[in-house]
């Protein structure tokens, strides 16, 4: 665990979370959510939780984002907030 990496990734995480929630285009929001997933996966690899990082890379960043994008395609892309 390296403290400097830890802080940098955590700050990026907060930024990614805020952007994912404030973008009005839902497709972009889902993709930024995928970026959020990869960042948090990086964080866990850095903290020594390799299995969790692996799962998050496959589930959080991969499948969740794909499911969200599938729903956005089938519904509406624009959002009011």
């Amino acid at each position: 665990m390296i403290f400097a990496f830890d802080i940098v990734i955590l700050v990026f995480l907060v930024i990614a979370a805020i952007i994912a929630l404030s973008v009005k285009d839902l497709l972009s929001a889902s993709m930024i959510f995928g970026i959020y997933g990869f960042l948090i996966c990086l964080l866990w690899a850095e903290m020594g939780a390799v299995d969790v990082a692996f799962t998050e890379a496959a589930v959080g960043a991969g499948i969740s984002a794909v499911l969200m994008i599938a729903t956005v395609f089938n519904t509406k892309r624009k959002s009011s907030d």
Binding site: V50, D51, A53, F54, T55, A58, V59, G62, I63
Partner: peptide, 14 residues
Amino acid sequence: SPGGGFQGGVILAA
């Protein structure tokens, strides 16, 4: 190594 049923299953589904 890191991995197992869940991770492999998800990758296979991918």
